[in-house]
C-alpha cells in the first residue's frame, strides 16, 4: 500500500481533524440548532473520511476493501430509514 514511499502527511491530517472539532463546537455555540446540526454532522463525516482515507490507508487499497466498508454502512442506512417513519412520525 504505502510501500512505494508515498505517505500522507499524518500531522497535517491531525491538524485538520482538530480544526474540524473546533468548527463543530463553534457551530453548536453560534448557529441556530437546526442549521448547526447539519454543519456538525458534515464535519463528523469529513473527519471520519480523513481518518479512513489517510490513517487506514484506504487511499491505497483495492475496491474489495471499500466494499467491506460500504456494504455494512448501507445496511445501517436501511435500518435507519426502515425505523425512521415508524418512530418519528408515529411516535
Amino acid at each position: 500500500m504505502t510501500g512505494d514511499g508515498h505517505r500522507p502527511n499524518y500531522f497535517l491530517v491531525w491538524v485538520w481533524l482538530l480544526g474540524l472539532v473546533i468548527v463543530s463546537i463553534m457551530a453548536s455555540l453560534l448557529l441556530r440548532k437546526s442549521v448547526a446540526v447539519y454543519l456538525i454532522f458534515a464535519a463528523a463525516i469529513v473527519k471520519a473520511l480523513l481518518v479512513a482515507i489517510n490513517y487506514m490507508h484506504l487511499k491505497y487499497e483495492r475496491l474489495l476493501l471499500y466494499a467491506l466498508a460500504i456494504v455494512p454502512l448501507l445496511i445501517v442506512f436501511v435500518l435507519l430509514f426502515a425505523l425512521f417513519s415508524d418512530f418519528v412520525f408515529h411516535g
Binding site: 474489495l64 476493501l65 467491506l68 466498508a69 456494504v71 455494512p72 454502512l73 445496511i75 445501517v76 442506512f77 435500518l79 435507519l80 425505523l83 425512521f84 418512530f87 418519528v88 411516535g91
Partner: peptide
C-alpha cells in the same frame, strides 16, 4: 481482509446502535 471483515461487522453493531439512538431521539 480478516480485519476488514471484522470491522464490517463492527460497523453494523455501532451503526445499528447509533441509528436506533437517532430515531428514538427524534421520536
Amino acid at each position: 481482509v480478516g480485519v476488514w471483515w471484522f470491522l464490517a461487522s463492527e460497523i453494523t453493531v455501532f451503526g445499528g446502535l447509533i441509528a436506533c439512538y437517532i430515531v428514538v431521539r427524534l421520536g
